[in-house]
Every structure is written in structure tokens, then in C-alpha cells.
Design a protein around this nucleic acid. Structure first.
Lengths: 201, 201
DNA sequence: GTCTATAAGGTGATAGAC
DNA sequence: GTCTATCACCTTATAGAC
């Protein structure tokens, strides 16, 4: 691994865990095992380094499913594939959504340059939903609503972990973990029922 | 309004919008129209001032429904009352959930002292859900899951506003506002269907 | 109670030796 | 490329006059 890669790795970890304001260049240097001055040698400023990390993280969070979506034609099949897939990804990167959400709420302009370059990730999914509604396989629902509902049910329990663990599970960590272990199944059940799609179980 | 109240009001606005790390004492002083030194005269330190604001905000976010819940006995009635009520509250205080979530993720210990003092807000609701499941009025579902699903569907679209506006609605602010205007109805529909409770519309 | 002035320590960034 | 030393500025907090 080159020095630059060490820096990127360290910056990713610290920025995503502590945010832009909470991160000090010294901490990234320590994490990378190098000197603070080297950070400025490779990346002119804290802001420049951050932009790179943020763009990369943002790209990761927006799921790109083009290949897999080519094979899937049924809405139910898609949901049963996507929910565990994305839940698993978020559970492995639990700080990622909170990082993006927080930085965007501090500086919404950051998304302009990125969203412009970003291809809308769900054109085929949108068509699948519209078609299912037309064929009365599911209840009438806006495609945006269904997509946002799915994202909300997957992301919120992880983003709000300390709150849920504290308020709902009253500091019982095991209870939260047990809840999360079954979460993917529960989200599938909730989503399919919410659009009146009978499950094939 | 006393000087202390001016400070609290200013601190609330700045802290909730920018978080602990993003907030500078100078900005609170400016917002309150007083001198920076006065902040330390009334509240010993930034941390002390923050703790007060955080505790107050946390208390607001956890809905206390004891009075209203005494009158409600049907789960459907509760959902039809609670979802618009809480949606409306969050829309009026859109930065509140993000503030609590972010500060708790930076320092999960903050919740210890607060959650201990906090009464679990949904004992009667839990019983209503359990009963509805037992009587087979709704599909089998854990009470925790249903409560978290409701919170997720209400809070997520507001917390993730910049992301949704950017990625889903492609910077079309009017489209997001239109989506949010109908959100409460859509959440009710989604929740009732998700537990197989036929709507009375 | 409220202000100005300033201390004390941190923080991003650069200069310059190697 | 990598380091040490240092600058210039910012931020919390306090001292002391009024």
C-alpha cells in the first residue's frame, strides 16, 4: 500500500466516524501512521481530502444494481433480493448513511456536483412498480413513495441505533441485536404487505 | 425575556442546526445579542450549555402521549391519530431528529442519564398491538418492530431530505414538497396495510 | 450583570532541512 | 517523499473594570 492509500484509508475511517467538523488532521495522520505535514503534501487541504472521501462514500451509498436488475422482472423478486442485499451492506457500513445525511444537512450544496453526475439508480425499478400498479398486482402507490419506504425501513434502525437501543430496548444491547438479526425478514414482510402483494412463502 | 432565556433560545437554534462541534460560542452570543463572556457567566462551559439543550431536545423528540392514549383503545384509531400528529411535529422541527441522532452517534453515553429518567413512552400501545395480534386482527408482528417501522417512515424522509431531494427528485424542490404534503396519508396507508389491517376509508 | 482584554491551548497550513 | 519546527489564526475560558 502506498502512502497515499494509507492516507485515504485513514481519512475514510475518521471522517465517516466523526464528520468533517469532528475530524482533526492530526487524528488522520496518527491513524495513517504518518506526519501531519504529509497530509498537506498529498492533499492540499482538509477540505480537498474530505471532498474525495465524501464523493466516494456517496457513490457507495447509492446502490447500483444495473446488472442484477437486468435479470429481474418481477417486483416481488426484486424486493426479496434487494432488501437483504442492501440491509447487509448497511450493517457492514453502519456509519455510512449517518455520515452522508449529516454532511449533506450541514452543506446541501455538496450534492449538486455529485447528483448531477449520478445516474438515477432506479429507472427499471420505477417501471416495474408502475406496471404492477397498472396490472393491479399491488395497491396504487407512487414509485417514489415505495422506494423511500424501503430505504427508510432499512436505514433508519441503523442510523438511529443509539436512540432505539436506549429508548425502545432500554439499553439492552442483546435485544437490539436480536431485533436487527431478524430485520431483513421483517422489512420484506412489511413491504410486501404494505402494497398488498401476497407473499409466496 | 431574561438574558438567560435569550441565551437558551439562541443556543437551541444554533446547536440544533449545527451540532456540538459545528457550533461556536461566538455564534450563540451573536444570535442572543450579547457578549461571549456572558455565556460563561450563566453556563460555566460550552459542554454544560449543550447538555441542557440536548436534554430538552431529547425530551421533545420522545412523544409523550399518555393523556391521549387513555382515550384510545383501537390500534387503528391510534395510528390514524399518531401518524399525522407526529409527522406534523417533526415537520415543524425538522432538524430535531438529525440533531439527536448525530449527537448520540458521536457520544452514545449521553443517553444513559436521560433514558434512565425517561419513562418508556409506549406501554399501552404495546398492549394494544399484542392484543390485536392475539385476536388476529393484524398479522403477527413484534411490538418493537411496528413502533420502529412507524417512526422510520415518519422520520427518515425528513432526516434524509437533502439526499432524497437530490437523488430521488433530482433537485426538484417542488417535487419533494409535494411528496411531503401527502406523506402523512401515505404512511397511514402503508402501516395499516403492512399489518393487514383493512382500512375504514 | 455586562463588558473589554487577554490568557492558554488547539488547528490548518507552510517553510525548510534531509 | 518525509520529517521537525513554526506561523497565523481560531476557540474556549477567565480576569478584571464598570
Amino acid at each position: 500500500m502506498t502512502t497515499e492509500e494509507h492516507i485515504i484509508k485513514a481519512a475514510r475511517e475518521v471522517f465517516i466516524r466523526k464528520g468533517f467538523q469532528g475530524t482533526k488532521m492530526q487524528e488522520i495522520a496518527d491513524e495513517a501512521g504518518i506526519n501531519k505535514a504529509l497530509l498537506h503534501y498529498y492533499f492540499r487541504s482538509k477540505e480537498k481530502l474530505f471532498e474525495q472521501i465524501f464523493a466516494e462514500a456517496f457513490g457507495q451509498l447509492i446502490p447500483t444494481l444495473s446488472q442484477k436488475l437486468d435479470e429481474i422482472t418481477e417486483l416481488e423478486t426484486f424486493i426479496r433480493f434487494f432488501v437483504p442485499f442492501y440491509t447487509n451492506f448497511i450493517q457492514k457500513n453502519p456509519h455510512l448513511p449517518q455520515f452522508i445525511i449529516h454532511e449533506l444537512s450541514q452543506n446541501p450544496d455538496r450534492i449538486r456536483s455529485l447528483a448531477a453526475a449520478q445516474v438515477f439508480p432506479f429507472p427499471k425499478l420505477s417501471r416495474m412498480i408502475t406496471q404492477a400498479v397498472t396490472e393491479k398486482k399491488i395497491r396504487p402507490i407512487e414509485t417514489d413513495s415505495l422506494i423511500i419506504n424501503i430505504m427508510a425501513l432499512i436505514i433508519f434502525p441503523i442510523v438511529a441505533k443509539p436512540m432505539i437501543e436506549g429508548v425502545i430496548f432500554r439499553q439492552n444491547t442483546a435485544a437490539y441485536q436480536n431485533f436487527m438479526a431478524k430485520r431483513s425478514e421483517e422489512v420484506i414482510e412489511t413491504i410486501l404487505n404494505s402494497i398488498n402483494l401476497q407473499t409466496n412463502k
